[in-house]
């Protein structure tokens, strides 16, 4: 069946674990490559996943990344337990950042993360509850960007 799930995986993230940052996204990238997806789709999914992973590590206490691949698309859902985002519109503005000096010294926290996720995903949805956490949902069409 067209919508049959062909792959599903779940990963855990821990806030503050900078030394392991990027591990989950690289595993996702390797998996998508192994599944034979288009290289541009793999790259966009890996970049968006990496941005989301960094956000959890930089701002949240813990998080979960769920990957689902169907014959039609790739979906990555990132849920975190953290401070949440009080003003999503502001957080989606390029250059807006609440990053600490430590994050910036590592080369991140330039206020490009969420806008870059939106740019790379074909469908992007963000829901956040201040004081509880944030959910990011991103979908990538396997046959390229939808018209």
């Amino acid at each position: 069946m067209e919508e049959d799930l062909c792959y599903r995986q779940e990963y855990s993230l821990k806030g503050g674990e900078f030394a392991r940052a990027g591990e989950v996204s690289r595993r996702i990238k390797d998996l998508l490559k192994e599944l034979g997806l288009d290289v541009q789709v793999v790259r966009r999914a890996a970049i968006a996943s990496f941005e989301a992973e960094m956000n959890v590590i930089m701002y949240a206490f813990q998080g979960t990344v769920r990957l689902a691949v169907t014959p039609a698309d790739v979906t990555i859902i990132v849920d975190d337990h953290g401070p949440g985002i009080p003003d999503i519109e502001l957080a989606m503005t390029e250059g807006y950042s609440t990053a600490t000096r430590e994050m910036r010294e590592l080369g991140f926290g330039a206020g490009m993360g969420l806008p870059n996720i939106k740019r790379n995903a074909d469908v992007f949805r963000i829901v956040s509850e201040p004081g509880r956490g944030t959910r990011l949902e991103m979908t990538f069409a396997r046959d390229g960007r939808p018209s």
Partner: peptide, 21 residues
């Protein structure tokens, strides 16, 4: 994809970022 990166950062995140991008 396939670009050359010139940077003054030498931490492990450079490699992670380069690998992903």
């Amino acid at each position: 994809p396939g670009e050359l990166l010139i940077t003054g950062l030498v931490n492990g995140h450079v490699v992670s970022t380069a690998a992903v991008a």
